[in-house]
Design a protein around this nucleic acid. Structure first.
Length: 932
RNA sequence: GGGCGAUUAGCGCAGCGGUAGCGCAGCAGCUUUACACGCUGUUGGUCGGGGGUUCGAAUCCCUCAUCGCCCACCA
């Protein structure tokens, strides 16, 4: 047994054991194992990200699940990796490069140079978060670490694109998309955050063309009027019937635009007249398609006004243009009024600038396997925890719109599409333009083109474009060949989520049927935040069914969101997120894990408070010292517990251990980790340390060697179980103690001998063992009675202000079955001299007396301290409480309906309760009488 | 406009149909040889308001209020 320091010092311990686990390959999953599989894929953090408390929460839960599963005998794969996080990473690198003065816009560097810089950045900053996860104790299989832009992974992304294209689910189209003018790229609907804002509603007057009068339109975006192509009214609105077929003169632009009618216009809103800006509003765009209106683009991709906006405005930022437009219209007397108006404005989730509806050519995906994905969650094939998220999921799935998957970025998977200019005869369809995009020359629809062993298939209807596997690095000949035919690869990259949605199987080597894939897919659990239920979870489910024919995971655990004390979301910009690494340094990884888990009930948001971590630290120290206490009693160890020598306290703690194991299993079954930590905390601190260890001292300080040894055997039994129960939560300290206490020695190699990681998970004690040890339910009541006695004595001590270090003299009479050892326990815990047994004790007037549940009386003679008044007051107060309880119980039992309708066991319970209180009252009254 | 969640002791939370609990903080005492990152005792609550169901409600139902999320193209 090694010597143990007085306080737990996490730093060296954590480093040592993590290195050991890696060296022993404890985290490596064996795809050929005969054990049942358990698998989790990590939600891949951004490759250049740093660890946040959210990650701590998320990954601690995964680690707990993984470690628990290992101990339960599963072959565990926890597959880690990182995400290239297209737009986020590119934005970070762009900012850094601009700061270094290396470029103003990425075009200055050019695609190739820029990508070099991003890769360099990734090499330098990527993987920081991986090292941080290791500090947290994450037991990921690092030999299988993946990155979404690994060559193999990229191939998966490309072949998925091709496959979906061939199925007709991916198409290219000119559409109104969410445009981020700062990043200059399209975004998906999910990447737009609607923010309620106090804005203005301008009522503008548009003069009628060729006659007097005007129409009034209302708008929140006056700058778009420069691109107006119509004014629309509802055809059934009688107020505007006279306007049908007329035209208005668009101010500032001075062109005539028609007044059209459309059902979409709500007559009840504003004036019932709407300005129509086809190129800058999704609804207006739709309307314009129907009415064949021209598209005038007045806002460019960078958010500045275009030439088409007119000389006065061209080049102005959209917000400045708004001001100027209003100014000019006011000067013309065309602003009727301005109202305060609360409305919702779409912001880019990434760059936080207002989104611009923008017309551009993009790639879209019609979601595959939607029905299967919906029913999987509805039928429980995939279970959500907490369940309520299933509703949110279904709701989103029922309103799916096509997914805009192309991004005008450089960092990411480039769209695997090559476009070719017309060079020869067109196989089918018509091509009257010189700029028609067609298939590879010479290819008919049924032919494949094989270049360097890769198959290229023609795609598209009538040969518009060619979709194929993009050229991999190391195959310049393909690229050359394609270029020779005049091909050009689509410059766009794919949405990051278009790669992450393949994560559960692409990381396992798909499309090859690898051993890993066969053993570990579908994965068991997914642990993630509800904020990415649409971005990621839903899409993974669809991809799983589409490409694997099976659900990607069986359970999804949605964590809460970590907030600060004010309830604000943790964020970098607010600076309210503490650095978990600092917390680990200060308190230890185990403490951080424990603190976070303790405050993380299933599905609730978590208000972060450093006190929780401190509590974790304190708990680790308690565990440490409880083991240290055992270490201070060397020798005398016998492996086997002798049932004949068990004290009532021994039996009690074994029963409590059994209960704790059951509680823990129940908590795990329901993914209730805060329940689990609470149960462990209570068991170990309140039951084991506060009562059992103190009681055990009665034996350990005694002279009977055999009994001492037996007590140590019980302690070892409880501690070795406890350490295992704690291991998923507190991996480091439990490993250290497992070895330090010598428990590892007693175990076979693969089952706890080398590491606690594979020690068997404690099972509840079965009936045979309970009988063998004489563990009876009554034991719990007996000890509860003793505990009450001890507390009452302590109360009296406090009442009379007797210092805790002064021993009490106690005289007792005739408790039924109290042997010398048990008497010692009471003496120790109550802080008493050896109690004197006296059948006929004549108490002094006012001498405190306690009536324990198990019968007899305990007198506390307080020579010189007796204060009849104080004792009277104490008893009176007690009596008051008891009377109140009796009244409640009597009232209930007096209700005839209660006796009639309540179940008999409840009735019985109430009667018993009343009897107990009445007995207590009798005792108190007797004591008061003695005082009188 | 729809949907979801929260509201329990000063603070953070548990309990989800039968005596209101835990941790911090507070108060009183203690160098009791595992631990002051500790020990002992203790003060705090008509469980957001109102109504209902029930013998019985913090717990189930309705309603209101406050806070927080998510979804929704009304200019």
């Amino acid at each position: 047994m090694s010597e143990i320091s007085k306080a737990y010092e996490p730093q060296s311990v954590e480093e040592k054991w993590y290195a050991y686990w890696l060296e022993q390959k404890c985290f490596v999953a064996d795809a050929h194992s005969r054990k049942p599989a358990y698998s989790i894929v990590i939600p891949p953090p951004n490759v250049t990200g740093v660890l946040t408390l959210g990650h701590v929460l998320n990954n601690t839960i995964q680690d707990i699940l993984a470690r628990w599963a290992r101990m339960k005998g599963h072959e565990v794969l926890w597959l880690p990796g990182t995400d290239h996080a297209g737009i986020a990473t590119q934005a970070v690198v762009e900012k850094a490069l601009r700061k270094e003065g290396l470029m103003k816009h990425r075009e200055d560097l050019g695609r190739e140079k820029f990508l070099e810089k991003v890769w360099a950045w990734k090499e330098k900053h990527g993987g920081i978060i991986i090292e941080q996860l290791k500090k947290l104790g994450a037991s990921c299989d690092w030999t299988r670490e993946r990155f979404t832009m690994d060559p193999n992974y990229s191939r998966c992304v490309q072949s998925v694109f091709v496959e979906l294209y061939k199925k007709g689910l991916i198409y290219r189209g000119k559409r109104m998309v969410n445009w981020d003018p700062s990043a200059r790229t399209a975004l998906s609907d999910e990447e737009v955050e609607m923010v309620e804002e106090q804005g203005s509603l301008w009522h503008l007057k548009y003069p009628l063309a060729g006659e007097d009068g005007f129409v009034v339109v209302a708008t929140t975006r006056p700058e778009t009027m420069l691109g107006d192509e119509a004014v629309a009214v509802n055809p059934n609105d009688p107020r505007h019937a006279h306007l049908h077929g007329k035209k208005v003169m668009l101010p500032l632009v001075n062109k005539q635009i028609p007044i059209i009618t459309d059902e979409l216009v709500d007559p009840k809103f504003g004036t019932g007249c709407v300005k129509v800006t086809p190129a800058h509003d999704p609804a207006d765009y739709e309307m314009s398609q129907l009415h064949h209106l021209p598209l005038t683009v007045v806002i460019g991709p960078g958010g500045a006004m275009t030439e088409a906006a007119g000389a006065d405005f061209a080049g102005l930022d959209r917000m400045e243009a708004r001001k100027l437009v209003v100014e000019k219209l006011e000067a013309l007397g065309l602003v009727l009024k301005v109202e305060k108006y609360v409305h919702r404005v779409g912001y880019s989730e990434r760059t936080h600038v207002p989104i611009e509806p923008y017309l551009s050519e993009q790639w879209f995906l019609r979601y595959p396997s939607v029905d299967k994905a919906v029913s999987a969650v509805e039928t429980g094939q995939i279970k959500f925890h907490p369940e309520r998220w299933a509703k949110v999921y279904s709701h989103w799935m029922s309103g799916l719109k096509d997914w805009c998957i192309s991004r005008q970025l450089w960092w990411g998977h480039r769209v695997p599409v090559w476009m070719f200019l017309w060079k020869g005869p067109v196989a089918s369809g018509s091509a009257d333009s010189q700029q028609v995009l067609i298939d590879l020359p010479y290819l008919t629809k049924d032919q494949n083109l094989q270049i360097a062993g890769q198959v290229f298939r023609p795609g598209g209807k009538g040969g518009e474009i060619f979709v194929g596997i993009a050229v991999q690095p190391g195959h310049p000949e393909i690229e050359q060949l394609l270029e020779k035919h005049g091909g050009k690869q689509d410059p766009d990259v794919l949405d990051t989520w278009f790669s992450s949605w393949l994560w559960p199987f692409a990381t396992m080597g798909w499309p090859d049927k690898t051993d890993t894939l066969q053993k570990f897919y579908p994965t068991t659990d997914l642990v993630t935040g509800p904020d990415i239920i649409f971005f990621w979870v839903a899409r993974m489910i669809m991809a799983g069914f589409e490409f694997m024919g099976a659900e990607p995971f069986r359970n999804v655990y949605f964590t809460g969101i970590i907030r600060d004390k004010q309830g604000r979301k943790m964020s970098k910009s607010l600076g309210n997120s503490p650095d978990p690494l600092d917390l680990i340094t200060k308190f230890g990884a185990d403490a951080l894990r424990f603190g976070v888990m303790r405050s993380a009930p299933l599905g609730q948001d978590i208000l972060y408070d450093e006190q929780q971590v401190e509590l974790g630290r304190n708990f680790c120290n308690k565990l440490w010292n409880a083991c240290r206490f055992r270490q201070l009693h060397p020798g005398d160890v016998q492996a086997e517990i002798d049932p004949k020598l068990l004290t009532i306290d021994d039996r009690w703690i074994l029963l409590k251990l059994d209960a704790a194991i059951r509680e823990l299993d129940a908590a795990f079954a329901g993914y209730k980790f805060s329940d689990a930590t609470a149960a462990l905390y209570r068991f170990f601190w309140s039951e084991y340390c506060d009562w059992y260890v103190e009681a055990a001292k009665a034996i350990l300080q005694g002279t009977d060697a055999a009994r001492r040894a037996n007590t140590l055997a019980v302690i070892d039994f409880v501690l070795s179980h406890t350490l295992r129960l704690f291991h998923p939560f507190l991996p480091f300290i439990t490993e250290e103690l497992w070895h330090g206490m010598g428990y590892a020695k007693d175990m076979p190699d693969g089952q706890g001998g080398k590491t606690i990681m594979f020690a068997p998970w404690p099972k509840p004690l079965d009936e045979d063992i309970k009988r063998h040890y004489g563990l009876l339910h009554e034991t719990l009541d007996t000890i509860a009675g003793r505990q009450k006695l001890v507390i009452e004595i302590r109360n009296i001590r406090a009442l009379y202000k007797i210092p805790a270090n002064k021993k009490l003299n106690i005289v007792y009479n005739a408790p039924a079955d109290i042997n010398p050892e048990e008497k010692r326990v009471i003496e120790l815990l109550a802080g008493a001299e050896p109690m004197v047994h006296r059948t006929a004790h004549e108490p002094a007037k006012g001498e405190p007396v306690v009536h324990p549940d198990f019968g007899g009386k305990f007198f506390i003679p307080l020579a010189g301290l007796v204060d009849a008044q104080a004792e009277k007051a104490r008893l009176a107060k007690e009596l008051q409480k008891v009377e109140a309880e009796i009244q409640k119980a009597e009232a209930k039992l007096a209700n005839p309906n209660f006796a009639d309708k309540a179940p008999p066991e409840v009735l019985q319970e109430h009667r018993q309760r009343l009897a107990d209180w009445q007995a207590k009252r009798a005792q108190l009254r007797a004591s008061l009488d003695e005082l009188a």
